[in-house]
Structures are given as C-alpha cells and as structure tokens.
C-alpha cells in the first residue's frame, strides 16, 4: 500500500509542514503506523550553500565522534546541532537525529568534475554501508528529510513539522512489507538534492541494484526505494538526461508502441531501451522524485499503483489520492490521472 504526496510551488513560495501532515494523515488507511516521513526544500536559507547532513545516531557518545572525525577529514563542519524533537506517546525515540552543515574540501577529489557531490556521495555510501551506529539519511543543500517509525501525525509532531517552511514537499505514509518498520527504512530517501517517495514494490530491484552498484553506488537500506534515488542521480546528474528522458528510461514505452512510432522517435526510444535496459523499473509503483528545481511523479508501465495530479495557481500536487490533495487545498483544478509511465513534471520558474 503506502500513501505518497508531493507539492511544488513554482514561485518558491513557502508552505509550512502543517497541511502536509494533515494531508498525509488523510491516508492513514494506506499505512500501518510503522513509518512516515517528510522532505522539505528551502528550509535552511541561512545555510543554503552548505550540504545539510541529517544523521541518525544510535548513541551520541559512542558513535558521533567517528562521524565528526570523518567529516573533518573531508571538509569543514560549518555548524552542527541536534535536530529538535518533541516526545510523542506513540513514538519511541530509538535514534538521535542530528544535523550538520558541511562544506567538502574539493581539493580532495581532484579528478572529478563534480567534486563536492562526489565527496558527499562517497561519505553517504561509506557511512551507511559500514553500519557503525550512524546513518546519513539526508544530504542535500537547503533541504532536509524528517522521518521515523510511526503514524504520519506522530512523526510530524515529533519533529514539529509545522515549524519548517519549504517550497517543495514530499511525504510518505508507509505500510512496510519487505523490511520491518525501522527509521532508516521510512521514506523519503534522499541523496544529494534528490529525494524519492515510493508506493509499491520494484520487482526489478535485483537488476537495478546490480546495475547501479557497478557505478559505485551502494544499496545499504534494505529497501527497493533507495535505488530510485541513485538511478535518477546517475541518469540526470551524471549522464545529463532531462527529467523527462530519465523517466522514459525508467518506465519506457512498450516495444509494440515503439514499433508504431515515426522513424526518428523509434530510434530514440530503442536507444533508450538498449542503453538503459538494466535501469528500467518493473513492478507496481507510483513514485515522486524531487530535486531543488523540480517535482516528477510517474508510475510503472501498466499503472499498478494510483497517482493523481492537480494544480492550483503556482502549485502542482501529486498524490496517491485526490482526497489527500484536497485536504491541503480544496480549490484545486485540473485533477488528472496520468497515464502509465507518463511523467507529471513541475518546475520552479527560474
């Protein structure tokens, strides 16, 4: 099951997390109270030039100093603090969430064309695969993931999500199947500025994982969703595809449709399927992917999971359920159900 929601304001007007929480709570039917999470873009304007690392520590005394040392080895910690939380009766605080604002030292990755991002990716993969009581679950600039094991409203209140102001939000209400409801397994998943929420199951996970791991990514979260964040990072950031073409690669048209296309389009789509066959995602899914400039929603090629989009003014909404969107804004227009495999894309106005 699972319920997802994504909202973007094209003029970067800020929205607080209160309504997102209420909207997500509308879909409690789709969850099981074992995981929920939020990501908001634009929440750290004072530190917008630094990477905001959100880390779950199992134990501050035991595990934090290693992270401090590691980060200082690779750059400068501009500021760090505990993420404020507020006790909730139904939520057991098993980790201590912490935030660092971090500037990587580019000179340490001299051969890279994107040294900052490569250092951060390296640190995330290293810390998360070593499993030494620390998990980096958010690593972009001017954005932050807030998640835990619990019902959407409890998780939101635990972080007081209404205190955060963002122009782009993703949220997720989890019904775990593959892995138990642990904090790291809750959505959104994030790498650099990419965040993903996902309803469904990726039956091609084994293929996708082998593909992405051959490019140096490491799947460490025991769940199929993180692979989506890495695939999008690879296709868009490293291979330079547009979001639309990246979605084409992840959920491409069927051969029958390609065979009927005009020659040029046929050639393009065949090339996409040939080059990115191992990146293609199979199985039932509805996914929202975001970065600092855009929000993309899409489903699997035969739409085995629901996805609805709507607009109002500068805002684009994408969700599993129309009712959840209406909970944020009752006056929405252009309510549509995107076709299987076809992306809904919202971009900020430059």
């Amino acid at each position: 099951m699972c319920g997802i929601i994504g909202v973007i304001d094209r003029r970067r007007k800020l929205m607080d997390g209160g309504k997102i929480r209420d909207s997500l709570a509308m879909m409690d039917e789709r969850g099981s109270g074992e995981g929920a999470g939020y990501v908001a873009y634009g929440i750290y304007p004072d530190y917008k030039d630094y990477f905001a690392l959100h880390i779950f520590f199992d134990n501050i005394r035991e595990h934090k100093s290693a992270i401090d040392t590691l980060l200082e080895k690779w750059g400068t910690i501009i500021h760090d603090e505990q993420i404020r939380t507020y006790p909730q009766p139904n939520l057991r605080k098993v980790h201590t969430p912490w935030r660092y604002f971090f500037r990587p030292d580019r000179s340490l990755m001299p051969k890279s064309t994107t040294p900052d991002e490569d250092i951060i990716t390296h640190l995330v993969m290293k810390v998360n695969s070593e499993k030494n009581g620390a998990l980096i679950f958010s690593s972009g600039k001017n954005l932050g993931v807030f998640k835990a094991a619990g019902w959407p409203e409890d998780v939101a209140n635990f972080y007081r999500i209404e205190d955060y102001q963002g122009y782009l939000w993703l949220a997720h209400n989890r019904y775990p199947t593959n892995t138990s409801g642990w904090w790291g397994g809750a959505h959104p998943f994030n790498l650099l500025n990419w965040s993903v929420v996902h309803n469904g199951e990726i039956t091609s996970y084994g293929t996708n994982r082998r593909y992405i791991e051959s490019y140096g990514y490491k799947c460490t979260m025991y769940t199929d969703t993180e692979v989506v964040a890495y695939l999008v990072d690879l296709l868009v950031r490293k291979h330079g595809l547009s979001e639309k073409m990246a979605v084409r690669a992840l959920a491409p048209p069927f051969w029958d449709e390609i065979d009927r296309m005009p020659a040029k389009e046929q050639e393009l789509n065949r090339a996409i399927r040939l080059a990115y066959g191992s990146a293609m995602m199979n199985g039932p899914f509805a996914i929202c992917v975001a970065n600092e400039n855009s929000l993309v929603g899409f489903t699997d090629r035969i739409k085995l999971r629901p996805l609805v989009s709507a607009e109002h003014g500068d805002r684009l909404f994408i969700s599993s359920e129309e009712a959840a969107i209406r909970r944020i804004d009752p006056d929405i227009e252009n309510v549509t159900m995107p076709k299987a495999g076809e992306p809904v894309i919202g971009r900020v106005i430059p």
Partner: peptide, 16 residues
C-alpha cells in the same frame, strides 16, 4: 508470476 513484464528486468535479477 514474478511481476515482471519485460525481460530486461529479469536479466541479472538474482534476487528472484
């Protein structure tokens, strides 16, 4: 039966 509708997603899918 494995929830896969294209052979690319079976290839190298040792999880299945």
């Amino acid at each position: 039966a494995a929830g896969i509708n294209s052979i690319e997603s079976l290839r190298g899918n040792r999880d299945r």
